[in-house]
Design a protein around this nucleic acid. Structure first.
Lengths: 156, 156
DNA sequence: CGATATCGGACCGTGGCGGTCCTGTAAATA
DNA sequence: TATTTACAGGACCGCCACGGTCCGATATCG
């Protein structure tokens, strides 16, 4: 199904919320949980992970909480995905080389590698800022005309 | 990890093998299993699924086996993936609308939909024939220059 | 009839994942 | 300093999907 884990889905929703919040104040887990209507322990867990991975900065104590470690423009989709569920790759052999026994003889491996890279590159062009941008009618939404082109060697 | 299930991986490898075989004779499961060095029962299971989904045609009895239902050029990557593991989508709400409780209020939903469509479109440009093409040096390999471009509205 | 294969489905063990909870520690406030 | 707030880092658990196996039925060829 080529699906993101639910945790990752949650994580990105939370990141978007943080991106939409005034960046001078930290948001706490409970608050974000209530806002997104997600189970509090899970939200806490996800935020911890994102902080450990360097995408969020955290502050303890009262008035503490989480905030973006960087500007939303500088946080890409694959970064968030990778932080929450490890390296992005369609096939096992791309993510963990050496695992597959017939890695050397597999004739499908190389094409997959390229497809993989292409998907990864495509996603890396999308930033948290793009996702956080409210979808107001008439406003310029970069993703609006999102198009992925596969161009082969000689074709144009 | 945005990963294909192992079954799907196997399935595509098998499809490639079938695409590389002379198309006038059916290949049986045991044979393909030995060739790909995959567990025979699994190969059998995967082939059955592919046949049921209409990507392979099967013939029973002695001298029976499996062969491509269509020309390799007319079988796309998403078709194979979908046949083996259901609809392709990064988030649950795209694959099974109505499942997520906050579907209406979710502000990340729409961007994901578009990203999803873009990835799907990109993959759909790749055919089984592309994957089956032997990677001989110097030959024209369409995937060789595989590139996915995200173009936003005003940009060029 | 008998050999060969697919077909359809039941079956099972394991591991990952979503989810919960508890203890420690840092910061702010009074 | 005492108290409260909130993150940090784990341990822990139940469930379900997934990979994998196996069996009986059916169709085809010789």
């Amino acid at each position: 199904m080529i699906r993101l884990s639910r945790i990752t889905d949650y994580g990105i929703v939370l990141m978007v919320r943080l991106a939409q919040s005034p960046d001078d104040e930290a948001r706490n887990a409970r608050n974000l949980a209530a806002e997104t209507d997600l189970p509090a322990p899970v939200v806490s867990k996800v935020l911890k992970t994102l902080a450990r991975e360097g995408l969020l900065s955290s502050q303890r104590g009262s008035k503490g909480g989480y905030s973006l470690a960087r500007n939303a423009v500088d946080i890409s989709v694959p970064e968030m995905i990778t932080a929450l569920e490890g390296p992005i790759s369609l096939t096992e052999c791309s993510a963990h080389p050496g695992t597959c026994s017939q890695e050397s003889s597999c004739d499908v491996r190389e094409p997959w590698q390229r497809i993989n890279a292409a998907v990864h590159d495509a996603l890396s062009k999308i930033t948290l800022a793009d996702l956080a941008m409210p979808d107001v009618a008439g406003s310029i939404v970069p993703l609006r005309a999102l198009r992925i082109n596969l161009t082969s060697t000689g074709l144009e």
